[in-house]
Design a binder for these strands. Structure first.
Lengths: 194, 194
DNA sequence: GATAAAAGTCACCAATCGTTGACAAACGGA
DNA sequence: TCCGTTTGTCAACGATTGGTGACTTTTATC
């Protein structure tokens, strides 16, 4: 045990990184069940036993692989007139920016059959869209409005990164912002209650 | 082999039905990988070997279990002014009506890691929302508009049936129609191209 | 009631899974 | 150079998977 405080680029950290990268790619492509520890080992050019030695179990490896991501600093002020556009902009940056890598695909592919991933996914929306939505309307129906927004965001990510529906993959960032932004805006300000 | 033309409630058909029902429930709850043939047998109170005898393989069983569904007769005339509401109405009926059972959940849970399910899902949207959308605007960007609509519909189903996001589960049909309808309408008529 | 087909049971195979422990090689400080 | 720690390899475990085939029981027809 090296405890390894502060900095030490010590040999093993590189291997650890390689394993994590391999795991991220495979989890993103095949989901939790579809990616075996042996596959991860092969992809990282290392014995499968090492995968377990570095991370203690497959679940722990998945947990590490899935917490890359996704959290721009909370916005200080939210302009109620542009909250929809702000939201879709933020998420696109996080999902396709270099920081999170395939992080979103990892969760999406596994959420359907892995409770840990599903819970993580619920947390993301609870922590990242609910507060924003709550800041631009009465708190009473903030949950409902946040739910509607989450459904659109998750559906977009699902079509684009998992199902790979061609016309959705083909959309540019600008097109997405121009089209989805107003829809989210409508949900956020909640102009129904007819 | 009984070929069994026309009607014969012959003993075996009942078992066949029980197996299919059990398979549908388990696939809907745990996805393709998560539901084993042994589980299906146990749930149907029958030996796992029988599951294979009735359906030749797990893939074939899944294929049977997944083709319950979902196809109201194609609408003859589509009123461009209410196409959004029409679409969300239709899908809610199919998804939660008695005919399809847990059919949508089966596909949703498996689409992430099973290519057959993913393809089936793409077909559904290609066959059911594209034509409708194409009928109410220029065909040039019908794919894009249909893609946006699909993303919202799929996200709604995902949040409601798989992720079970509480505020989305709590939505009534009327609330969904009132909120999602206009969003789909906007996508369908495509008022952007700024 | 005999008999053939249908319906159901049981034991088992080969493959794959996550995980473990015993052991060999590489490395670094003394 | 010696030696202990780190890094890695290898073979194997028990469990579970989809699938098979030999077998027995039920059912229906004559």
């Amino acid at each position: 045990m090296s405890t390894n405080h502060s900095k030490k680029p010590s040999k093993s950290d590189r291997t650890r990184g390689q394993i994590l990268d391999a795991a991220r790619d495979l989890f993103a492509e095949h989901g939790y069940d579809g990616a075996s520890i042996r596959d991860v080992g092969t992809r990282a050019s290392i014995d499968p036993a090492m995968v377990i030695r570095y991370f203690r179990s497959k679940d722990e490896l998945f947990a590490r692989a899935a917490l890359v991501d996704l959290q721009l600093p909370a916005l200080r002020v939210i302009d109620p007139a542009t909250v929809g556009e702000t939201l879709i902009r933020r998420f696109l940056e996080v999902w396709e920016g270099p920081a999170s890598g395939p992080g979103m695909a990892i969760l999406l592919r596994s959420a359907a059959s892995n409770e840990f991933a599903a819970e993580k996914m619920r947390e993301i929306f609870a922590d990242q869209v609910r507060p924003v939505v709550a800041a631009v309307g009465d708190l009473a129906d903030a949950g409902r409005r946040a739910g509607l927004i989450s459904s659109q965001l998750l559906g977009l990510a699902m079509c684009r990164y998992v199902l790979r529906l061609p016309p959705v993959v083909a959309l540019s960032h600008d097109e997405i912002i121009r089209n989805v932004g107003p829809a989210l805006q409508r949900y956020a300000t909640g102009e129904d209650t007819a």
